[in-house]
């Protein structure tokens, strides 16, 4: 394939009334890459995905998706993209097989019956093929949605929070499936709020208030944040956290089960601040910052305290 980039867009902007949902966003995603798309609710992830697959017209921006112009060739893009909506959007009064058959017809898939049969088999839906989609549990609905998105053999899959409300086992199976497909050359752009899922991605893009704040592999994103994190173990941690948050050099203090993570972007200042608190009572340990530390930090630093 000539173009090694599945997604290559610049300056993508979308405004709704006076609100800018996506602001001057650039994003490049390699073919065969699983790109995690993160950011708090309302940060513009869904809007960005919808612009990529032609569901929303960008107010500004240019670039290509699978080599097609994102502005003028959305029909060509739609033919080669699978888009899984955040809310289950297949027909609940059709069975699994009927849903897949409908989608296959809409994309004019050659040898439709075989495509449907293979789709059912690949995601283990064969036994339930005659069940109504509306009667499926969350995990099965998500499998149906993935099978339907794959039926026309797309090059790129845009998945909007595909695993929300799905149990851990089903989530793991789902990610195994995704990596297998990526191994066959498919490109994924997946939004998620789960840190374990973020770690399963090749690269991450973190977006806040419609702006891209960080982009790279998990290690790169963590390194770029230049965050120092200490973990504290001991009694009365909530009170300690309350005290720490008011002190200089402390950007955040967050509970992780029986430990407290204290981080700051100025390592020296943080160490100075916590020095008098390092008593016998509490066990302090410097640790590697995790993705979650970094993301919460990114969120706070840009001054947004909105609900997430």
């Amino acid at each position: 394939m000539a173009d090694p980039l599945a997604i290559d867009v610049r300056g993508m902007t979308k405004r709704f009334g006076g609100r800018t949902a996506v602001n001057q966003m650039d994003l490049q995603v390699q073919r065969g890459e699983v790109c995690g798309f993160l950011g708090p609710n309302g940060s513009g992830k869904t809007t960005f995905l919808r612009m990529l697959c032609g569901l929303l017209r960008p107010d500004a921006g240019s670039g290509t998706c699978l080599g097609y112009d994102v502005i003028g060739q959305s029909e060509a893009i739609q033919r080669e993209v699978g888009y899984m909506t955040q809310r289950f959007s297949f027909w609940e009064d059709l069975t699994i097989a009927e849903n897949l058959d409908f989608v296959a017809r809409m994309y004019a898939v050659p040898d439709r019956r075989r495509a449907v049969r293979e789709g059912l088999e690949r995601l283990g839906l064969s036994r339930r093929r005659h069940q109504l989609a509306g009667q499926l549990s969350g995990g099965w609905k998500q499998r149906l949605a993935l099978a339907a998105c794959l039926i026309h053999q797309p090059q790129l899959l845009l998945l909007d929070e595909p695993t929300a409300g799905v149990d851990p086992k089903a989530r793991r199976d789902f990610w195994e499936e995704i990596h297998q497909l990526a191994g066959q050359g498919l490109t994924f752009l997946i939004t998620t709020h789960y840190m374990d899922e973020a770690e399963r991605c090749h690269r991450l893009a973190y977006i806040l208030d419609g702006r891209l704040l960080a982009h790279g592999t998990a290690t790169e994103v963590i390194r770029q944040a230049r965050l120092t994190t200490w973990s504290v173990r001991g009694p009365r941690l909530p009170q300690l956290a309350e005290r720490l948050r008011a002190l200089p050099g402390v950007r955040q203090a967050a509970s992780f089960g029986t430990t407290l993570h204290v981080s700051g972007d100025d390592a020296a200042a943080l160490e100075q601040t916590i020095a008098p608190l390092r008593t016998q009572e509490h066990e302090w340990r410097r640790i590697e910052s995790g993705l979650e530390d970094v993301f919460i930090h990114l969120m706070d630093r840009s001054g947004t305290q909105g609900p997430s």
Binding site: Q78, V81, Y83, T85, S89, E92, V103
Partner: peptide, 13 residues
Amino acid sequence: ERGTMENLLAMPT
């Protein structure tokens, strides 16, 4: 109302 419109629109129609 059922949210299936988004899906329909994402298809080349």
